[in-house]
Design a protein around this nucleic acid. Structure first.
Lengths: 197, 197
DNA sequence: GTCTATAATAGGATAGAC
DNA sequence: GTCTATCCTATTATAGAC
């Protein structure tokens, strides 16, 4: 056991590389991010990067997306766990997303979308990792909706729309440099959910 | 007047270049698309591309986004004009989007998002063009909602969420390679709008 | 595991003939 | 307006010493 999983204290080289890759690809996309830039940002040498990721840039992108997957899943779980009412939880999450966006001057949006979109259709590994991320987030929402008393079929469909709306609102907020899409999304998702119980 | 605007018959070199740039950047992103590739796809030479776009890749990206802006605005206007009920119009639009995605094997998503995300924060011209596109689409929806009897304030907020949800659903559909997010979005947007009249 | 050097290729952009 | 040739830089990836 070489502690691949988590390292809260003194992250190892591999972790630093993954984190740097995730952040840079989130901001600049897959093609716009160079491996040398990742190595520099992670305070690692090029040799170390290829030591941990012999598959090169593609393998690195998969790890970066999986990192973003866990990151967003944690934010989502935290919000859902802190409120009994799903609508209140989504409002809190939208606030978190809006704060993160404006604090980064609208640079840090979804940690999966930018990387996934730039490689759509031409990198099956990356596409699959992104699809798994969306599916995981959707399942978290679906479980919460079912726990709040919404029927199985409705909960499944609604989870799709909740994730779509959150993603779209974060995207629109980033492009428009405004929190408005996120506050509107929180309000309307609450209204929508109120129809189903 | 050298007919810069539209040319339904025998598109000129400039038009072919803009169209190729828009399509390629939509699929591969800004950094992932080379000017040489654009020239080749448009059956133009590199010299011609730089003749029409002396500002280089950035100027070309702005023109590509503006092209995508008009493209989506036309699809939106067509759907909104064909149905009195906004909910029915959005359902029809989601069908159009889903058909376009699956017909292109999930390659052709929003013609603005991919380009805009990959350059967020580092190319003000491109960012501004993308923001204008989102604002235009939102206004088209807002006008339709007001015409259907929804109050000014509600219509403005709802237009934000309609665009966010459409964008997010198209994104989720592309990443997941499934029409499900778009059909769910159409259904739930209809339910949401039914609360406001 | 880490580091430097380098190979092989592709990128954006320019010059100037036609 | 179109075309070709070319400059300069950056890119991914590898080799091999330590």
């Amino acid at each position: 056991m070489t502690s691949q999983t988590k390292a809260a204290d003194a992250p190892g080289t591999r972790d630093r590389v993954v984190r740097a890759a995730s952040l840079l690809m989130q901001r600049q996309g897959y093609a716009g991010t160079g491996i040398k830039q990742i190595a520099q940002e992670a305070r690692a040498t090029l040799g170390s990067v290829y030591h941990f990721f012999p598959g090169g840039k593609q393998e690195l992108a998969v790890a970066a997306i999986q990192h973003g997957d866990r990151e967003f899943a944690e934010a989502l779980s935290e919000a859902l766990g802190a409120h009994d009412d799903p609508a209140e939880a989504l409002t809190a999450l939208c606030r978190t997303l809006a704060d993160g966006l404006s604090a980064s001057d609208w640079a840090d949006g979804c940690p999966v979308t930018t990387t996934a979109l730039g490689t759509a259709g031409r990198a099956p590994d990356i596409q699959a990792a992104a699809a798994e991320a969306f599916a995981r987030w959707r399942e978290l929402v679906e479980q919460k909706l079912r726990a709040s008393g919404i029927g199985a079929h409705d909960a499944r469909d609604l989870a799709h729309t909740v994730i779509s709306t959150l993603e779209g609102a974060e995207l629109a907020a980033q492009v428009s440099r405004s929190e408005r899409p996120l506050t509107a999304a929180a309000h309307h998702l609450g209204r929508l959910l109120s129809l189903y119980r």
